[in-house]
Simulated scan of single mutants.
Amino acid sequence: MTTTVAILLVLVSLPFFLEPYPLSLAGRALAFGLLVVSVDLLTGIMGMASLGQVAYFGAGAYTAGLVGIYVSNSGLVQLAVGAATGVVLALLTGAVAVRTAGTVFLMITLAIGEVAHIGAESLDVVGASNGLAGIPPISVLPGGAPLALPGHVYWWILAVFLVGYCVATVVSRSPLGRSMRGVRDGELRLGALGQTSYPVKLLGYTIAGGVAGAAGTAWVAQTNFMSPDDMGFDMAAFALLCVVLGGAGSLWGPVIGACLVIFVRDWLGGYLEGRGTLLLGIIFVIAVYLLPKGFAGIRLRKLQRKGNQS
């Protein structure tokens, strides 16, 4: 509990210490981290590795951007509509996807992500394949003043992240979360106990889609721009690798992995002449050997040692 409070205090205080650019990186890291949390709900909690969450992330982002341009610049409105879009699309596509498992499920979600990516490139809206530009700065309430200061925008993104993270945490600790772990640990056993796995998988998939949609609204609130590349295969692969790097099923571990990806790709990559992705690949390979259970495994080993000593 003390560690959680300390982390929250650090996150809240970042605008007082960081310049606008590193603060914008922190905002993007939180938005990407929420996308990774949605992937972890499926991959870590339910045991169904997915490459398709970028579809709902992009849908939420594009919806929020279009709402901002044509309807309202309210962050609350954009968050609600973006998350709802992710829920609806996840429900429709998940109705088919969750009937599969293993490699087939992974390939179907990859196809969902690629179809969404191609669809975004062909959208007949502002910018089309060049991206959705002209998204106005958000306000908190409808008709309110836009958030002009970088720190205020960051606090909004932090609020969206915390809401999404809390939703994922509540779900993972709920009876639904226990059933999702039952799917992961032994779907046949779950059926033997009299519980049908299909509704569990579909509900978990739908909730994860809503979390990804909310992450998309946070992303465009920071960037005021959405590119089809932001929902391409690279983004999907990085999100899944963050789950492996952070520790599948821990929720907080993959968020650390997401922050590392944004820092290396967008910060260090500028100093390495665009070789940030290469450095990330090296980091992932090393981490797989040295941290087989990810960052969360370090804490787990410490707790086990304390338990043995006591």
Rank of each mutant, 00 (worst) to 15 (best):
A55N: 08
A55Y: 02
Y56I: 10
Y56E: 03
Y56V: 09
Y56S: 09
Y56K: 10
Y56N: 11
G58K: 13
G58S: 08
G58H: 12
G58V: 07
G58M: 03
G58N: 08
G60Q: 03
A61Q: 03
A61D: 01
A61H: 06
T63A: 13
T63G: 10
T63M: 13
T63D: 00
A64G: 11
A64L: 10
A64Y: 04
G65A: 02
L66E: 14
L66G: 04
L66M: 15
V67H: 06
V67R: 14
G68E: 10
I69T: 10
I69F: 06
Y70M: 03
Y70G: 01
V71I: 15
V71E: 09
V71S: 09
V71H: 03
S72N: 10
S72H: 12
N73F: 00
N73I: 00
N73R: 14
S74A: 09
S74T: 05
S74F: 10
G75N: 04
G75M: 07
L76H: 02
L76T: 00
L76Q: 04
Q78N: 12
A80N: 02
A80T: 14
A80Y: 12
A80E: 00
A80L: 14
A80P: 01
V81W: 10
V81K: 07
V81P: 01
V81I: 12
G82Q: 04
G82A: 13
A83R: 04
A83S: 15
A83W: 09
A83C: 09
A84C: 01
A84L: 12
A84Y: 02
A84R: 02
T85F: 11
T85L: 07
G86S: 08
G86V: 04
V87R: 05
V88W: 00
V88Y: 06
V88L: 14
A90N: 07
L91M: 11
L91P: 00
L91T: 01
L91H: 00
L91K: 03
L92D: 01
L92E: 00
T93I: 08
T93Y: 00
T93R: 01
T93F: 08
G94C: 12
A95M: 15
A95D: 03
V96D: 02
A97Q: 09
A97Y: 00
A97H: 00
V98W: 02
V98N: 07
V98Y: 02
R99N: 06
R99T: 10
T100V: 12
A101M: 09
A101N: 13
A101Q: 15
A101W: 05
A101P: 00
G102E: 13
T103H: 14
T103W: 01
V104A: 13
V104G: 06
F105L: 12
F105Q: 11
L106E: 07
L106G: 15
M107K: 08
I108A: 13
I108T: 05
I108M: 08
T109H: 11
T109M: 13
L110C: 13
L110V: 09
A111Y: 03
A111G: 15
I112M: 15
I112K: 15
I112P: 13
I112D: 11
G113P: 07
G113I: 04
G113T: 08
G113K: 08
G113W: 04
V115E: 07
V115D: 10
V115T: 15
A116H: 05
A116W: 07
A116F: 14
A116Q: 07
